[in-house]
Computed example of a mutant assay.
Amino acid sequence: MSPLVSIIIPVYNSALYLAEAINSCVNQTWQNIEVIIIDDGSTDESLSIAKTFENERIRVYHQENKNAAAARNSGLMKAKGDYIQFLDADDILSADKIEKQVTLLAANPGMVAVCSTIHFTDGHQPTEFEPSAYEEAFLLNLPPFDFLFNLYGGKNEGQGSMVQPNAWLCPKNIIEKAGKWNEDLTLDDDGEFFCRVVLASKGVTKSAGYNYYRKYQGNKNLSGLATQKHLRSQYNALSLKILWLKAKNPLPELTNMHARWLHGLLFKAYPAAPELMRQIKNDLKTLKASIRPEYPFGTTSGKLLSMVFGWKFAKRLQLFKYQLRKKPENSGKLS
């Protein structure tokens, strides 16, 4: 009998996109699937939309609002599959994604599979876009530590990448070995979780198929405006990832990688989280890494301003410009 794949969809106020996500599961060429939808206290029509799909293969559950990690853990407890596929409620899987990965993992026991991610703009068809050539360069068939060290920028002086959760397909027994999602984390919870999963495997293998990751125009998120709770979560996730990596292979190069991560987080934390900034500075003193800090301004003008006036001045100017752009958009709205 062919292996069962459990697709776990955490849902919170995703009524606009949920049906499309579920249909991408139903239309998989690998038909031996179960879809587990965990509504995490949605206040829109998400739960009622999910209920319209409910049948012997699609199960819908509701819980009080916690967070996505808690919803995924609820799904894992209910999953009966040999393999686990996570899917965000506003994203899509290509029809052959699961079949390609199950077939590959059957030939490579003990490994986890990853596929290409296509970032597509909301309002457009996913097939209009191509995978990022930059991200593709990090999707290599490598042993666990080597894959993560390369992904995190250890081999490229900080220029790393990321893997969006939908891109993975993991044997359930490897996830059980790695442990459940950390529900105390709200930012980079996926990075910390899959760090443990990859390290619990025999390695990573790249498959065909696509993960379609929805991006939004006029994205209101700015890294420098993250809440203190999210910034603290990212710090904790970063610290845990370094801990797991060192336990696997205490390479001296991990010190410089850790320091680069901390400098990036220091940039995000300024000026909103002074307590976290003090902790990061203390960590950097303890590490004594021999690197030249670089801050992610993203524009040539920002980098030039930081070189002339310092990164803090350039960051404040960046935030001021962001607020000016945002002001007309919010005028007349209730806070």
Rank of each mutant, 00 (worst) to 15 (best):
P3L: 11
E130D: 13
R72V: 00
D40R: 00
L319M: 12
F129Q: 01
T255E: 10
A21G: 08
A259H: 02
G153Y: 03
Y270F: 14
N13T: 09
S239E: 10
F194W: 02
P250Q: 12
P296W: 09
A226W: 05
E176I: 04
K281N: 12
E20N: 13
R214E: 08
G191R: 01
L276G: 02
E192T: 07
T43K: 13
G41T: 01
G179P: 01
S2C: 03
G123T: 08
L76H: 05
N32K: 04
T127C: 11
G310T: 08
F86L: 06
I36R: 04
A178I: 04
V308A: 12
A79G: 03
G191Y: 00
L93A: 04
L199M: 06
N23Q: 15
D146A: 14
M277G: 08
N249F: 11
M257S: 04
E294P: 01
E136H: 07
R278A: 14
I38T: 00
D283Y: 07
F267A: 04
F147G: 06
L47S: 00
T52W: 09
E157M: 14
W168Q: 00
E135I: 12
F313S: 09
H230Y: 12
L254K: 03
T29W: 10
S207M: 05
D39L: 05
G153M: 08
A259N: 04
N282G: 15
N67H: 01
S132T: 11
S207D: 05
S335M: 15
D90W: 00
P328Q: 12
S2E: 12
K333S: 12
G310V: 11
A314R: 06
T43H: 11
Q125W: 09
S239Q: 10
V35L: 07
E192M: 01
L238N: 02
V5Y: 03
Y83C: 05
Y61E: 03
Q323V: 14
N166S: 11
L317Y: 10
N156Y: 15
N23I: 14
V5P: 07
T29S: 10
A15K: 07
W30D: 03
D88H: 02
L148W: 04
L225M: 14
Q279N: 13
L185G: 05
K51E: 11
D90H: 06
V11P: 01
L105G: 01
L238K: 03
G218Q: 06
A133D: 14
Q159C: 15
G310E: 12
E56F: 10
Y270I: 09
C170D: 04
T52E: 11
Y134L: 15
G153W: 09
Y12M: 11
D96K: 09
E34I: 02
H124I: 09
P126D: 07
D122F: 13
I242Y: 06
L251S: 07
V112R: 01
K100M: 06
Q125G: 12
Q28Y: 01
K285Y: 07
L284R: 02
L169E: 03
S74W: 05
D40L: 00
F267S: 02
I291W: 04
S290L: 15
V197F: 02
K180I: 08
H230Q: 15
F194V: 00
Y216T: 11
D44P: 03
K229E: 13
L262Y: 03
P171W: 08
P109H: 06
K312F: 09
S223P: 01
Q323W: 15
E192P: 04
G224Y: 05
E192G: 01
E135H: 14
A15H: 01
E157W: 10
T205A: 10
Q28W: 00
A89R: 00
